[in-house]
Design a protein around this nucleic acid. Structure first.
Lengths: 213, 213
DNA sequence: ACCTGAACACCGTTCAAGT
DNA sequence: ACCTGAACACCGTTCAAGT
């Protein structure tokens, strides 16, 4: 439990780590101050207020993103997903910071360029690019069976409860839901889940582009 | 400002209305109690705690959903979107309540049935159905230019600021972003945005199903 | 069955003051 | 430049008590 010096960067690191450990609601001005052995008000030298802290956390997540100039659409999205998955609890802070960070602007730029090549209008391309990036966020935030802020044991109980609830359903009314109980409550292979979800979206984009001709 | 009697239902209505007016963070046990001219602790008779209140709000949103037995995949998603848009501020509470409500189970059941008909395995269908429903949530939550909890004037300023920020970007580095400044910051026609986003996803599902043969 | 009162341990934030 | 201290207006929640 070594305490690095208080600075914008060290606070941001601590905030992301805390979020990943105990969930975003655990990220509190007072709590962070406590971790640094410092008064809550010390934070207000480094951040105007908590909103600025949260915004900076969203930007910090995006900071690790590397956008290849020649990346394909699915490479772009997979790269984004990979970065987002490193800080699952902070991912919900990312969408608002997309245009506030050079990495976010770079993915957007590349995505728009690819969509223009495919023949989409500026407006269509903008909508698709936005939706694509929000999709990545959503996949990570909503990854089945990855509710954060609980330890392994607690999570298992929670998951077992959800499974049991579905198992108790009427087989006449919800046959498919019952048959899909496990894959609905927990994701089997996370890599496969992300890969195929991204591919599905890209397939839609390509099908739509083809229909434009 | 008439005060209906305090009850689970009336509290829920007030909570949804308050969320839509001022945003989800404004929904507070004490604030709601105040609206009913009652002590904060009175709430704890009707709800075990705030989490239960929020869960019930998510279910209440889903409550208005009507699932046609013969609905197509895109009809299903459009129906969901339509219901979600009625309470934009509470939409983020919906995903966890999908299997806790008969309406949520019905959309899921119908979606899984359609996906099975298209030839997807149980696991694939489950992933796609989940993603589809999360997509609907995400479209509403992330609708460009619809930041909630601010009045018309405030929203306009906020939007103008975002536009100005993009306009200040380097034209060499981000030509496509600059060209798409308006459609990226605000959605032109909301109906068109939702319709085409859903169609895009469905196109992906169909393209993928076709590839399975 | 339904609500109140007092109390507790938390929040974010301001403002003046210290070094 | 960077942090503290005291204070304010908020949170959710418990627990015993009232009607």
């Amino acid at each position: 439990m070594n305490k690095p010096a208080l600075s914008r960067e060290s606070v941001l690191d601590a905030a992301l780590a805390l979020a990943d450990r105990e969930g975003l609601p655990a990220v509190t001005v007072r709590r962070l101050a406590g971790e640094f052995g410092v008064t809550p008000m010390a934070m207000y030298w480094h951040f105007a207020n908590k909103d600025e802290l949260l915004a900076a956390m969203g930007q910090a997540v995006l900071f690790e993103l590397e956008v290849q100039a020649e990346a394909s659409f699915s490479e772009l999205l997979r790269g984004l997903v990979t970065v987002l998955r490193k800080h699952p609890a902070a991912v919900s802070l990312v969408p608002t910071q997309m245009f506030a960070t050079s990495q976010g602007l770079q993915v957007t730029e590349r995505a728009l360029a690819l969509l223009a090549e495919l023949g989409f209008s500026v407006g269509e391309a903008a909508n698709i690019a936005r939706t694509a990036m929000d999709l990545c966020v959503m996949l990570v935030v909503g990854e089945p069976g990855r509710e954060i802020g609980m330890d392994e044991c607690e999570r298992e109980k929670h998951l077992a409860g959800k499974l049991a609830a579905i198992r108790g359903l009427s087989a006449e009314q919800y046959p498919h839901v019952l048959a899909a109980a496990e894959p609905l409550t927990g994701v089997g292979d996370a890599e496969e889940f992300y890969r195929s979800s991204v591919e599905l979206f890209v397939a839609g984009v390509e099908a739509r582009a083809f229909a434009l001709r």
